[in-house]
């Protein structure tokens, strides 16, 4: 039991947690862009899957990780345009269209995987990059500064997203169309355009989340590779109160507890494995129950906008 508190174990847990948090960060922060503008996109997992496939396929065939990342972004953008077209232009029920998008992504990625790749293969994806100087610091360097570029990217995204959402004129538009689209419209803000851009940003980030699995963390593709991570990302948006920093804490909490339970199993701490596996979910639900703050929820979430309905 004392093993759990050794420095090397703590370092191991944190290193794992940072890796595990990466896809959640991309996907959840992307979903926050979308939801703050008033569009719930439940298709995140589907976008992740199809982008994970696309980037893996490109890397497998060209060997270029950057082309692979580009493929994930392009596919994410296309899926985002589809979601925006359905939910913004056609004003369809968002929950159902999101689930439709998920099933589309799941099915299409599975079909393409079978027809174009066939069996499980591995690629050389983004490799860990040791940051000069910082990476050499004992323990700290190992935990924080020896990851792949996509991992660093996920964490740099947090302040970047905060800046865009809170400090720019576009961020203000993004928030206003999710809170009171009629007010934004009355000031000449093009509600539909802001929502299109927001949904597409969200989908592109979901695409990068998929790529972070298939060409960075796992370097392979398999049917249903994400195993529902996209849905956990949607939950993390609520957990984080639609704020990038809140999402960061949520993602870190979830992945740290997950890393912690893996270490407990490895170290042979005597608890049933079923309990250990449940731990991250239980804790996250408990934290959610304590911290949830509906006040911050975008007031126009899930509501299509039509001029002159007030």
């Amino acid at each position: 039991m004392n093993d759990v508190f050794q420095l090397s174990v703590v370092a191991g847990i944190l290193t794992s947690a940072i890796r595990l948090a990466t896809p959640y960060l991309y996907a959840a922060i992307g979903e926050a862009f979308s939801q703050r503008s008033g569009v719930v996109n439940l298709g995140v997992d589907g976008i992740m899957l199809i982008s994970a496939y696309a980037s893996f396929y490109i890397v497998l065939n060209t060997g270029s990780i950057w082309l692979g990342l580009l493929a994930a972004i392009v596919v994410g953008l296309l899926m985002g345009l589809l979601m925006a077209f359905i939910s913004v232009t056609l004003k369809a029920e968002q929950g159902i269209s999101g689930i439709g998008l998920y099933m589309f992504g799941l099915g299409l990625s599975s079909l393409l995987f079978k027809t174009t790749i066939g069996t499980v293969k591995t690629v050389t994806g983004f490799q860990p990059v040791k940051i000069p100087l910082l990476g050499d610091i004992p323990v700290v360097g190992e935990i924080f500064f020896q990851h792949s570029l996509l991992v660093y990217g996920a964490f740099l995204l947090v302040p970047l997203a905060w800046f865009v959402l809170e400090k720019t004129t576009w961020g203000l538009k993004n928030k206003s169309v999710g809170q009171n689209p009629a007010a934004a419209d009355s000031l000449g803000v093009n509600v539909d355009r802001v929502r299109y851009v927001s949904v597409c940003i969200g989908a592109i980030l979901a695409g990068i989340a998929g790529a972070s699995l298939s060409i960075s963390l796992l370097n392979l593709f398999q049917d249903n590779l994400t195993a529902g991570q996209g849905f956990i990302a949607v939950a993390l948006v609520y957990f984080g109160g639609w704020k990038p920093v809140g999402i960061l804490w949520g993602a870190l909490l979830f992945s740290t507890v997950n890393a912690f339970q893996l270490w407990m199993q490895v170290l042979g701490v005597k608890i049933p494995s079923d309990v250990a596996i449940m731990l991250p979910y239980l804790l996250t639900i408990a934290a959610l129950a304590i911290t949830i703050n509906r006040v911050r929820q975008p007031a126009a979430l899930n509501k299509p906008f039509e001029r002159g309905e007030s």
Binding site: G12, L262, V266
Partner: peptide, 25 residues
């Protein structure tokens, strides 16, 4: 011999992390 169970037949990401944890240990 250390054992980990992920609770899923299909969660590749967690399985990968479990393997990395074993290696780190």
């Amino acid at each position: 011999v250390s054992k980990t169970w992920t609770g899923s037949f299909s969660d590749v990401a967690l399985m990968t992390e479990a393997a990395k944890t074993h290696i780190a240990a």
